[in-house]
Simulated assay, not measured.
Amino acid sequence: MGFRKFLPDQLFDGYRISTQQVLIANADGTIEDIVPVTEAGDGVEQIAGLICPGFVNAHCHLELSHLKNAIQPHTGLPDFLYQVVNLRSLPPEVIEEAIAQADRSMYEAGIVAVGDICNTASTLKQKQRSPVYYHQFVEAIGFNPAGAAARFDAARQVYEQFLSFFPEKQVSIVPHAPYSVTPELWALIRDFAPYSIQSIHNQECPGENEWFVRKSGELVGFYEKMGLNTNFFEPSGRNSLPCYIDRFAPTQPLLLVHNVCTSREDLACLEGRAAPVYFCLCPGANLYISQTLPDIPMLAQSGLSLVIGTDSLASNHQLSILEEIRHIRRHFPELPLENILSWATLNGAKALQADAILGSFEKGKKPGIISLGETLSRVKPLH
């Protein structure tokens, strides 16, 4: 079996950055070893810049790819959501072509795995032929307690379509957001698969916390615009995360996405959970929608497991984890690059329960090999 040997200026293996180390991979990209340059022998390829495992995009909405440039930036979350609902219906062939282009662009940008939000099965055809590893988070949304069973059945129908191609471990039914799923619907989601990976849009705007604390704020206008009756809802006096966290089974791993308005005090409600919790950062989308970012240093200093996502082309200019890394470094230059790269690789693979094959350069894994260039300005897949 032939080998390729890579000697970059810097090598990030999923855990740490080193120099003068040679990555050895089989012809099919399976990792064989990392050895000092003095032990590598002949046939070593010198690579300018940094080599790392393929990126994991922990949060994406591939099915919204046809909405690129359809929604103006800086609308705020409620107006953005309203426009997505009203603009997302286009001819199937238009949607499918946009999905195909976005999937290819992610792979070309070094993304090897994606946690993808699905409201329909429109992405299934492209995923069947894609080299990218996908976990399907099939969203259930329901504002009316009386309609919980029907909403869950609709999500389960989409779930079953994905199961026709993907193994059960790569498909979950999940709640959209704490302000869009009633306790009745949530109970159905939890009881359906109490050990499955869960994803939820968490504290993406101040209005989410205001709604749970006082039943006020910017979400009130959104509900009115959508013609939704919210008489059933009673405010709790608490921010959303501590209010809803116990609606998940303690055995369900959680992927909390956005976290723009998550405070240090909110994190106390996660103490003692049996299953892991991952906080997903999507800075490009946060800047696009509201020009606001999470307190990423606070989240990092809290010892939490962080991962990185792109959100959708409705809320971002591109689906590029490298660009998300650059956003984080521009706004928080004090954060070590080594840490950020671990969020984009191994942590993401762990969050999607794919770290047995992806996320790090370890013998037997096939994580993808990408070069980031000398100034982290471009991505070049090497395998």
Rank of each mutant, 00 (worst) to 15 (best):
V114R: 00
N26H: 15
I95T: 13
K127Y: 10
Q83N: 14
C52G: 00
A102Y: 09
E39A: 08
M106F: 01
E45S: 12
Q72G: 08
T123F: 00
V138F: 10
G110Q: 07
Q136H: 06
V84E: 06
I31R: 02
V56W: 05
H135L: 02
R129V: 10
E96A: 15
I117W: 02
A58I: 07
I31V: 11
V94E: 13
G54Q: 01
Q101M: 11
N119D: 08
E96V: 06
E93H: 14
R129L: 11
Y133L: 05
I95G: 07
A58H: 09
E45R: 04
V56L: 10
E39H: 10
S105V: 11
R104F: 09
L67Q: 01
V114F: 00
A48N: 13
I31K: 05
G110L: 00
D28E: 04
F55C: 01
I71Y: 08
S122D: 13
P53D: 00
Y82W: 14
H59I: 07
N86G: 12
P78T: 05
V84Y: 15
H74E: 13
F55R: 03
K68G: 08
G49V: 00
P91C: 13
P92S: 11
V35E: 04
G41D: 08
A58M: 10
Y82R: 15
T30K: 03
E96K: 12
G43R: 06
L87N: 01
E63T: 09
A70M: 06
P91R: 15
Q83V: 07
A113E: 05
G41T: 08
G43M: 10
V56P: 08
G76C: 03
G110W: 09
H59Q: 09
D116W: 02
G54E: 05
G41H: 06
A121M: 09
S18T: 06
L67S: 04
T123D: 03
S89C: 09
S65M: 09
L67H: 06
E39I: 01
G41V: 07
L50C: 02
N69Y: 14
N69D: 15
L77Q: 03
K125H: 14
P53W: 01
V35I: 08
A121F: 07
I71F: 10
P92Q: 15
V84T: 12
G43Q: 03
I47V: 03
I95R: 10
S122A: 14
F12L: 09
T19A: 15
P73H: 05
A25I: 11
N26T: 09
G54N: 01
E139F: 03
A113F: 01
Y133K: 11
R16K: 12
G54L: 03
V85G: 14
H135F: 00
A48F: 09
L67F: 06
G14L: 01
A27D: 14
H59M: 05
A140D: 11
T38C: 12
G29W: 01
F143E: 07
S122K: 13
